[in-house]
Design a protein around this nucleic acid. Structure first.
Lengths: 215, 215, 215, 215
DNA sequence: CATGAATGAGAATTCATTCAT
DNA sequence: CATGAATGAATTCTCATTCAT
């Protein structure tokens, strides 16, 4: 719980949260990620958070409000900014080669996901059922991230590091490969023994060869 | 609706379904896939199916029974058998090269997904919340499919078509790439314009190069 | 209860009401008229009606629906039609003199109110808080009744029975006098001893003299 | 708001009200008159008054206390005293004829109602639901006012200004006629165009002729 | 005095399930 | 087999009231 606290503190840093509010959010994240939004009752959250049920509704007008207040910062703060920063790093020639960028991104996202796994699960599971979330997702991820990622792809394509196929395909192949690993690693078989270094190395090689320009 | 009927007829072929039962299943698939299992009420399903609420419970003891009766055939009949058949085809030297197998598999899964999209969505979305489903999934997909897929991978690795990394990694990279395409194509951006042939060709090349043995 | 049943049967004649529905409406009328709409809980109504709380909501989507379903027939059926009928009677020269009409109206409304006292109380008390009710009231009472009443007034004014002041003033003075009696008689001091015949006779004389043309 | 302040100052003159208390009472009058006591929440009042929820309960132990603290002065100070004063005026031969008294009363009550409309609405609407209010009303209005009014009626009956029917009937006919006007004028159709002078004149003539002794 | 977070009892409403017809 | 009224437990949400700061 001290650990999950730190995540919450980080994600909700500029909002002043009462001790009880934090408890509520923690409990909600826990329950939503485990049983889904619709499958979790507010009384359950209240009990887990150790507060009265009314307290939840004092802070969040509706149950949906609670959900959104949890996901919004995940979308707004944690995913979008990451790419922006990395973009600048790249433009500052920190990642000369595509391979460098790839390794940096994998490491970065790996840490992020490991820390925010339950939130990530909620995000993934609830997006299909909530149009507002889908919109926010489109705006933050699909538009912002995509447009920045595209610049990167074009940059490395010009340099000759990457094959000349549509940028969106390159992006999708990249993300699919990463997501496939993260899902399998952290959600589907988290209990298997994993040789992470080897997996990542193989994944990097797979992506590099798969995307390298054909002679 | 005549089309969706045909899918149902196909998936539930050996069960004798009354007209009302079919309507119920259709309505349930529709609602579950759109709003999730927990977010769908039985009265909603009854209304959409044009039957009385009681009628649902005459055929399915509980709401969960209804869910399982929808997902079970999807798991049991549609995914598992496919690989069995293909295995034999491969062993019968139908797909000499890994590339041939790849193209066949993509085409096959593409058709299957296109026809069963709502069911697929339900499967994906509900598995995390229902231990029984997870178990069934493990049994049918993770174990059966994996073990057969592994034979294939070893076969093509021996032939020198595929790089020598652990079979599970090869399988995961393959599936991730395919799923990434199908998700993006059919679930996330179904309304975009897609040049399917080009996408698939790029994907095949990506996989072939990404998995080809390094010199 | 057999009596109140008859009223309900009369007011809700063309709607097919279950036994339970009748019980619910009876209980609702009882409670609403005694403690007001906002001051009555649905659980209270359910208990008084001897049904489960859910049963109320099976028949009336919301608590407000229940209120409206009670008041609507009161407005639509019971008040409006009365005047229409009487209008025709008058035009058929049944009530030659204004005095005849007056006595008939008083008798008619007296019976009606005596039978529908609780409903009448609800109507009076809730109209100020529900815009929809106000609108319906305006439409049914203020517009329909007023326009017919006006014809009568003009008729008797032409005949020289009534003083030449604006019809709306005549109507208001009439209704005020009647309502003042009914309110005092049935709502404020129902327990006092009342010499009804004398009261009505005095009221009639008061109205006749008050409205008779000045020499 | 400066105007409504003055009313409050007037009604609550001997109570020392803080600025916040005034705001609370103003807000409460506003909300109670618009949505009824049971339909208004204390949090709503607090918000409208610009104070914390707790502040209300610092001044009024319960919500009902707040209601009573609003209605009590309306009953005690504003209605009762009026008649007392006027009685003395009459006994001082200020209003020689019944007509003079009538005009004076109408003018007086007109001003009073215009200034205290929301309070008046609350009084009218809440009395039926609160036994204490009903008692207070009986004590202040029904008993005190009635007994003084009766003296007046007897006085004018002796003088031959008024017909010889029971005093309570005279009083009721008077009040009904006035209330009918005030309700229609200020509560039901406040937005219509009103020729107040003509209305009042007609009303006075109606009452005078209606109550004049028959030859 | 004032605040507003917290409470818990209770309100309206939903829902899976049952059962008499 | 099918119906749909009825149920009552659970769920979301409201609200008057309390109390530590």
């Amino acid at each position: 719980m001290p650990e999950s606290n730190s995540i919450i503190d980080q994600l909700f840093e500029d909002e002043k949260l009462t001790e009880k509010q934090k408890k509520i959010i923690e409990a909600a994240i826990d329950s939503f990620s485990e049983k889904g939004y619709a499958g979790t009752s507010t009384s359950e959250i209240a009990k887990k958070a150790g507060v009265a049920e009314g307290t939840i509704f004092r802070h969040y007008k509706t149950k949906k409000d609670l959900l959104l207040s949890i996901i919004a910062p995940m979308l707004a703060k944690s995913i979008a900014p990451f790419v922006i920063k990395d973009i600048y790093k790249v433009l500052n020639h920190k990642y000369e080669r595509y391979e460098d960028f790839l390794r940096a991104m994998i490491a970065n996202r790996d840490i992020f996901l490991k820390q925010n796994l339950p939130l990530f699960k909620i995000l993934i599971q609830e997006i299909p059922f909530h149009p507002e979330l889908k919109e926010q997702f489109m705006e933050h991820i699909a538009i912002k991230i995509y447009s920045r990622f595209k610049d990167l792809v074009l940059y490395y394509q010009e340099k000759g590091d990457i094959i000349q196929i549509p940028a969106h395909s390159v992006i999708r192949l990249n993300i699919s490969t990463l997501m496939g690993y993260f899902f399998t690693r952290y959600l589907i078989f988290p209990d298997n023994e994993w040789n992470d270094e080897e997996e990542i190395e193989n994944m990097v090689q797979f992506l590099l060869h798969g995307l390298s320009p054909q002679k």
